Lab assay of single mutants.
Amino acid sequence: MSIQHFRVALIPFFAAFCLPVFAHPETLVKVKDAEDQLGARVGYIELDLNSGKILESFRPEERFPMMSTFKVLLCGAVLSRVDAGQEQLGRRIHYSQNDLVEYSPVTEKHLTDGMTVRELCSAAITMSDNTAANLLLTTIGGPKELTAFLHNMGDHVTRLDRWEPELNEAIPNDERDTTMPAAMATTLRKLLTGELLTLASRQQLIDWMEADKVAGPLLRSALPAGWFIADKSGAGERGSRGIIAALGPDGKPSRIVVIYTTGSQATMDERNRQIAEIGASLIKHW
């Protein structure tokens, strides 16, 4: 067993022997301040990774656009098919120029040779490549099948209805392509620590998230040296922004954090800054 596999296998073990965790309302004060600064709703939840206990939450059962955070769930569904012998990570998928959609920095470079399922998941999570996500959605049967996968996990809230990039439209009061912070946090925890996926697939999923290259201005910008984070960000229309993450000190994750916002007129930089400040408060009061 590799060191990384050992780390993920012992996530519940280490967490069980940690000192009790206590909620700190100071972080919620910052979440509410972010709402004021952005002029928009902000949803927040913080779960203990081992027990699933909610440590703090704000608007945990209000719907927010998922945006690209759905790509972690998508690759979880792909990995479940791999575990069941219905898919192979090494299978190569070929596609054409007509398949390319807006923001496809990886797939646009491989029109000639195609990409493997493993490479597509890596591109979808680490670079948020939209064509990679659409190609992977095709392998599982489309958005409705991802929703069905989530329902089978016990998540009857999260739903995907459309493809990239239309799913980022974020129309107010439109339930399409949305989740709730509580539902997303619980589902992410199941994917990373539950028995739904094999140990190898859980490790692969967290490795992809740990290698995320496009979430630097968010929670990662607030992390002290030595902290662990595996995350996936999302951005959408109407001032929408979000991030889902597993993080913790001492090089291992111990909490799940989900943050979503929508309806702001603020710039992307300002949305990023507010999420980073929430992260800084979380870490300060850990």
Results as ranks from 00 to 15, higher is better:
P181R: 00
I256R: 00
A200Q: 07
S51T: 10
F228V: 14
A245C: 10
D113S: 04
R255Y: 02
E210C: 07
R59L: 03
I140Q: 10
R220C: 03
T262D: 06
T262A: 06
K32V: 07
L282W: 02
G90R: 12
V214C: 15
E56P: 00
T116K: 09
D129H: 00
N168F: 00
P105G: 09
S68A: 00
D129E: 02
G234H: 01
R273T: 07
E35Y: 02
T193V: 09
P217L: 10
N130W: 01
L47H: 11
I140A: 12
E237K: 14
V157H: 14
G216E: 03
T267W: 07
E108A: 15
S221N: 06
P65W: 01
P181D: 01
V42R: 00
G226M: 06
R255L: 09
A215I: 05
P172E: 07
G279H: 03
L199D: 04
K213V: 04
L73G: 11
W227N: 00
Q97A: 10
A124C: 13
E61C: 15
P217S: 09
N50T: 12
F58L: 14
R162D: 09
F70G: 14
G141C: 13
D155C: 02
D174C: 05
T139V: 11
E87G: 10
I54Y: 15
G226E: 05
R220F: 10
G90V: 06
G43N: 00
E210M: 13
A225W: 14
D129Y: 01
V214D: 02
S221Q: 11
F58T: 07
T262Y: 05
T198R: 11
M184E: 01
L38F: 10
E119Y: 03
T107S: 11
S281H: 08
G236P: 00
S68C: 01
E145K: 15
H285A: 10
A170G: 07
I259Q: 00
S104D: 03
G39I: 09
M67S: 15
V258M: 04
H24Q: 11
E210F: 14
A34I: 06
T187A: 11
S221M: 12
R63H: 07
F70V: 13
R63I: 15
M127F: 14
P105E: 09
P60D: 14
V214M: 14
L38K: 09
K252V: 11
G39E: 11
P65S: 11
T186W: 11
F228S: 13
G39P: 06
M153Y: 04
I229T: 03
R59D: 02
E270C: 03
V214R: 14
D33M: 07
D129V: 01
R91W: 12
F58C: 12
I206Y: 03
D161V: 07
T131M: 14
E108M: 15
R220E: 03
I244V: 12
A133G: 10
S254K: 08
H24K: 09
A276D: 05
C121M: 04
W286R: 03
E145R: 11
P217N: 12
L135T: 11
L55T: 12
A185N: 00
R255K: 09
S104P: 02
P217V: 08
E46P: 00
L120I: 08
G248M: 00
I45S: 12
E210G: 11
Y260W: 02
D33Q: 14
H94M: 05
L191S: 13
Y260G: 00
E145L: 08
G263Y: 07
S80V: 08
K53P: 03
W286M: 08
G263S: 13
P224D: 07
L146E: 02
D129S: 01
L47T: 08
L219M: 11
P217K: 13
I244G: 02
T126D: 05
D174F: 03
T267H: 10
T69S: 10
M180S: 13
K213P: 04
E62I: 09
L137F: 12
G194I: 06
L28A: 08
S128T: 02
L74A: 13
A124E: 00
S201G: 12
I259F: 11
T198I: 11
T179F: 01
E62C: 05
G142Q: 12
S80L: 14
Q274H: 09
R273I: 05
D212A: 10
D36M: 15
K53T: 11
W163K: 08
A200V: 14
A266K: 03
R41G: 09
I229L: 14
K109I: 15
T69W: 00
E56H: 05
L137D: 02
R159M: 08
K71Q: 00
P105C: 04
E62P: 00
S57H: 06
T261A: 14
Q86I: 11
S233P: 05
Q97C: 06
T107E: 01
K53R: 15
E175T: 09
T112D: 08
N168H: 06
L146N: 02
E119W: 02
T116L: 11
N134L: 02
V106I: 13
E237C: 15
T27C: 15
D33N: 04
H110D: 14
L218I: 04
V42S: 03
T138D: 12
D269E: 12
M66F: 12
D83R: 08
D161P: 00
A84M: 12
T267I: 08
A235S: 07
P172Y: 12
K190Q: 15
T131I: 02
G216W: 08
G52T: 07
L205K: 00
M66K: 00
R92A: 11
R118L: 13
T262L: 06
D207L: 09
L100V: 07
P105L: 08
N152C: 13
P181A: 14
R63V: 07
W227I: 01
R63G: 07
L199N: 04
D33A: 04
N130V: 01
M66N: 02
V106C: 14
K213L: 04
P165Y: 06
A266Q: 04
E46I: 14
L150S: 11
P60G: 07
A211Q: 13
R81S: 06
F70K: 01
N152G: 09
K213T: 04
D161S: 06
A222I: 15
E270V: 03
R255Q: 12
G239A: 08
G251P: 11
G194M: 09
T158H: 02
L74G: 03
R162H: 09
E270N: 03
K252P: 09
E195K: 05
K190P: 05
I243G: 00
T187I: 14
L218W: 02
L218E: 02
G114Q: 11
W208E: 11
I244Q: 00
I125A: 04
E237W: 13
S240I: 01
I206S: 05
L89W: 13
R81H: 06
T187R: 02
K30A: 05
S240V: 02
A215K: 15
R202E: 11
K190I: 10
L199Y: 04
N152W: 08
S104V: 14
L167C: 11
R92F: 10
I244S: 12
D207R: 08
S201A: 13
N272S: 09
G279K: 01
M268H: 10
L111M: 11
L100E: 14
I256E: 02
V101T: 14
S254Q: 10
I45L: 13
L47K: 07
I259C: 14
K190R: 14
Q203D: 04
V214T: 11
E169I: 08
A40Y: 09
A185D: 00
R118P: 14
N98Q: 08
I140S: 05
S80H: 15
K232E: 01
R176W: 10
A34M: 12
T186D: 15
V101G: 06
S254C: 12
G248E: 01
G242V: 01
I45G: 09
S96I: 13
A245M: 11
A182Q: 14
A132C: 03
R220D: 03
A40F: 05
L205P: 00
T138K: 15
V157A: 05
L38E: 07
L196A: 07
R81M: 08
C75W: 02
R81P: 01
M66Q: 14
L137Y: 06
G194N: 13
R162K: 10
K32G: 12
P253M: 09
I93A: 14
